[in-house]
Design a protein around this nucleic acid. Structure first.
Length: 866
RNA sequence: GCCGAAGUGGUGGAAUUGGUAGACACGCUAGACUUAGGAUCUAGUGCCGCGAGGCGUGGAGGUUCAAGUCCUCUCUUCGGUACCA
């Protein structure tokens, strides 16, 4: 037998074997229990990187384990193929997004195959294919029909110089990334999905996802952000108009001394008309329209506003209060208007100080009295009501309800719920995406494309505009259309495409019947396979992708297409693989291989400039801090690479990439190889031992046998329950180390039969992690067929413990001594033995013993308190 | 800013429900075998101390017979923040 494991011979051999025997191909089989494991599909950015390898290795191990446990496992792979990087690459490399994408898919598929991942490649999909996105267009039409999709005006980042819309990622410090022009906000008509209709349902079911990490459901709950309060009506003074405000603190309504409207609020213009404030208001609205209008964006600007010249009536006090428009009020939240209580809200307080507005304290904290003249900041806590008419003296907590009820009885408002979640804007002014299937007609307005005209195919030969703009509006053969309703020939096709999150919100259903051409999926296939039993992917998707997917399943459920609502039963959020960025002053971000070591730092291989080493952040193609696994693959093979990725850290943990330690994985693999070689050479005609540990006479044989059973238990648990492959691997390493402790030359037949038992189990336990390697050794040991078709090993309940126990003795909580004794000794005997221990006697001396605590768990612990 | 995580030797990490801190590796040191070593094997390796012993899980307090683990405060780093995917 060769001295070392030779991956370049063994790995292709088994990949070929799996392929020709179609071992990963699956079909519906109602007689077997199904298991759907899915890793988040990759964006075809060019090459797979170590982060992908980590993600897919984790999934592959579980898949192979579940298969050996007898499940009918579906494990598909595909490509999230639409998106912005293809457009950028097309501009940079003078190619076409489609050509670039398909080429990337080809090379990444080859890499994945070399890793030995057990995908059913017959189910592969790419979201940029018309066969896929036609069903997305179909669903869009259904949603439009049901009112789940609608159009409204909304802001985008706009570069005037490039005449193009910019993604947030393309805005660097408020400037365009291509030309450094200051980015503006531009209002466009865009399509939205009404995800807010499902806010409550999405929220409630967060608590019914036991297979999800709490951190993810917590983030989703906070994202949805339900708040309970009241919607109050403020009459405009001298007008029939009413301003509705949502507040979570109706108890403070007596302290509302002014009101603020979002600059986009429809009443801002009309109320200011003819008041003398008109021009100032218009100028302010214009100014704010250039600012970023999002919850995050508004933090960047000083809080400011202008009086709009109108007053409204505080429904609680009957007083006239001034109405302002302010840049920190967003139209998207609540009603776009807020009642301002400067004594109770810091932003209102700052605003009141700035513009000299009244501050009235309505909630007094228990300790000391607030005085509007002297208070330095708002008090948002609870307390006793003051200056609140009949509610004075009441606890603010009780007043919240009482004041709401009172205002309700007067017709001034009612209890209300508000969510932070906003509707999902899906229009993108981009080329490389799914065309939105509607036509705009001057006579008929927005007209849906007839179903029979689907798919609306994206022209794949269009050239990107130099500044990154979409060519679709310029292509007459695409953009010009005949109105399906009235036949007018000068209608225009919608030239926006959909957000790529739309594709990734339902692809896992498509895998169930990837070639289905009668619908999004074959209902029978989805009934058998869906939902996904185990989903695995980066924690960075905790909110958006996972929430959109949950929303989409609710939409399909409402449309009667599926009978479930939650797409992913169990979720594993994998930590990110991180690496420092490298930036060259000439060439921007550099790939690691474009920087060479020079002195203490790095130099650019393109121009020799000194490279700035940046922070350690998640690997991403746009930052170029990605590690190509090819070098590892060539040097060590797929199995060692897989082992190393798993052994480096538990899956949920972030990992700063370093190849230190890969030698250790390689060493271990060869250690097992040599161990197998020795056993095969020296042990012949001995069957593996299969009885209870008690049936073994030799002490070494018994100890090794127990160790093996413990290892089977630990590895099974680690894979199945916690996905802690790093500890599963170290457990096998321990067993292998113990096997190395046996001298095969002098071993008797009993010990040899235990050794063979150990070896076979080591290979079975490692086979999900090192599939090629274990197949090869298993075959050499004389087994036929694939190890994949073998049963996962079971441990013997009666062979897990030895008859000796370790006793650990502490004095005042500090470890002082340890010894072993018979496992069945009683507590008194343990105490006596501890007190009789020489080291313990030295520490106790003649101090009085107050207490002796004996704990019998994993090990036995005695704590003597003196 | 807001939401969510993470922090343990020189390094990656281990440690059910509070119960031997540092498993398993990497690296390093010494030795063996070898023409050679980026092969293999053996031994050692948290820090301070000659030693008895003391100190140690980002920092500061606290609860407990006992705290990496629980509580309070705090620092740093990472992820998300709705048009990167």
């Amino acid at each position: 037998m060769e001295e070392r494991y030779n991956p370049s011979a063994v790995e292709p051999k088994w990949q070929e074997y799996w392929n020709t025997h179609q071992l990963f191909k699956v079909d519906e089989d109602p007689s077997r229990e199904k298991y759907y494991l899915l890793e988040m599909f990759p964006y075809p950015s060019g090459k797979i990187h170590i982060g992908h390898v980590r993600n897919y290795t984790i999934g592959d191990v579980v898949v192979r384990y579940k298969r050996m446990k007898g499940f009918n496992v579906i494990h598909p792979m595909g490509w999230d193929a639409f998106g912005m990087p293809a457009e950028n690459a097309a501009i940079d490399n003078n190619t076409h997004p489609a050509a670039w994408t398909y080429e990337n898919i080809r090379s990444m598929r080859t890499q994945l195959k070399k890793m030995g991942f057990s995908y059913d490649w017959d189910r592969e999909i790419a979201t940029c294919r018309p066969e896929y996105y036609r069903w997305e267009q179909w669903l869009f039409l259904k949603m439009l029909e049901k009112g789940m999709a609608y159009r409204k005006e909304s802001y985008v980042n706009w570069c005037e110089k490039c005449q193009t819309v910019l993604a947030n990622e393309q805005v660097e410090q408020d400037k365009c990334w291509r030309c450094s022009q200051v980015v503006e906000q531009k209002k466009l008509w865009q399509w939205f999905f009404k995800i807010t209709d499902y806010a409550e349902d999405l929220l409630v079911h967060c608590d019914q996802l036991p297979g999800w990490p709490d951190k993810v459901t917590v983030m989703q709950k906070n994202w949805i952000g339900k708040s309970i309060g009241a919607e109050l009506k403020f009459k405009v003074d001298g007008s029939d108009e009413v301003l509705n405000v949502f507040t979570t603190r109706p108890d403070t309504v007596f302290g509302a001394t002014f009101m603020c409207l979002a600059p986009e609020h429809p009443l801002v213009e009309s109320l200011s008309k003819g008041t003398g404030q008109e021009a100032e208001v218009a100028a302010f609205v214009e100014k704010v329209s250039k600012q970023e209008r999002s919850a995050d964006g508004i933090e960047k600007y000083d809080k400011e506003g202008v009086f709009i010249g109108a007053h409204c009536i505080n429904p609680a006090t009957g007083e006239k209060i001034p109405v302002y428009t302010a840049n920190f009020v967003l139209m998207e939240y609540g009603t776009g208007a807020i009642m301002s209580v400067p004594a109770g809200d810091q932003r209102d307080f700052d605003f009141a100080k700035k513009y000299g507005l009244d501050i009235r304290v309505v909630v007094q904290p228990e300790d000391g009295a607030l005085d509007p003249e002297t208070m330095a900041e708002a008090y948002a806590g609870r307390g006793t009501m003051v200056n609140s008419g009949r509610f004075d003296g009441m606890d603010s907590k009780d007043a919240l309800e009482a004041i709401t009820d009172w205002l309700d009885s007067q017709g001034h408002g009612k209890k209300a719920v508000s969510y932070r979640l906003r509707d999902w804007g899906i229009s993108r002014q981009r080329y490389w995406g799914t065309p939105i299937p509607v036509i705009h007609c001057d006579s008929c307005g927005v007209v849906p494309v007839p179903e029979s005209d689907l798919p609306i195919t994206l022209p794949e030969d269009a050239n990107l505009l130099e500044q990154g703009g979409s060519p679709l509006p310029t292509l007459d053969y695409f953009a010009k259309a005949t109105c399906p309703a009235c036949g007018r020939e000068d209608a225009k096709r919608d030239t926006d495409t959909m957000d790529t999150f739309v594709e990734s919100s339902w692809y896992y259903l498509r895998y169930c019947s990837p070639r289905c051409d009668t619908g999004m999926f074959d209902p029978k296939a989805v009934e058998y396979w869906a939902p996904v039993d185990q989903y695995i992917g980066g924690v960075e998707h905790a909110v958006l992708h996972l929430l959109y997917s949950r929303y989409f399943m609710r939409v399909l459920n409402t449309l009667g297409l599926i009978d479930f609502k939650e797409p992913f039963t169990r979720l594993l959020t994998q930590g990110m693989v991180c690496k420092e960025t490298m930036t060259c002053p000439e060439h921007g971000f550099l790939f690691p291989e474009q920087a060479r070591k020079e002195g203490d730092g790095f130099a650019c291989t393109l121009c020799g400039s000194e490279v700035e080493v940046g922070r350690v952040i998640k690997m991403s193609k746009s930052k170029k801090n990605v590690v190509d696994p090819n070098e590892l693959l060539e040097r060590y093979g797929a199995d060692v690479t897989r082992l190393f990725c798993l052994f480096a850290a538990p899956p949920e943990r972030d990992l700063e990439w370093s190849e230190d330690g890969v030698e250790g994985s390689n060493r271990f693999v060869n250690r097992v190889w040599r161990l197998a070689a020795t056993c095969m050479e020296k042990i012949t005609d001995v069957a593996p031992y299969a009885g209870p540990a008690a049936g073994l006479k030799g002490k070494d044989a018994k100890a090794l046998y127990i160790k093996a059973n413990q290892t089977i238990q630990k590895v099974s648990n680690d894979i199945d329950k916690s996905f802690h492959f790093n500890t599963a691997i170290s457990a096998v390493m321990e067993l292998v180390n113990a096997m190395y402790g046996v001298d095969v030359e002098t071993a008797d037949d009993e010990l040899k039969s235990v050794l063979i038992f150990c070896l076979e189990n080591v290979l079975l336990l490692l086979s999900p992690i090192l599939p090629h390697f274990c197949e090869e050794l298993f075959e050499r040991m004389g087994h036929t067929g694939s190890i994949l078709e073998k049963q996962w090993p079971e441990f013997r309940e009666d062979s897990l413990t030895t008859d000796e126990m370790l006793v650990v003795v502490q004095v005042n909580g500090k470890l002082r001594s340890k010894f072993t004794m018979g496992a069945d000794e009683d507590e008194e005997a343990i105490k006596a033995a501890a007190m009789a221990d020489e080291k313990i006697m030295r520490h106790v001396q003649d101090k009085p013993v107050r207490k002796i605590i004996v704990i019998r768990k994993k090990q036995t612990l005695v704590n003597i308190v003196v």
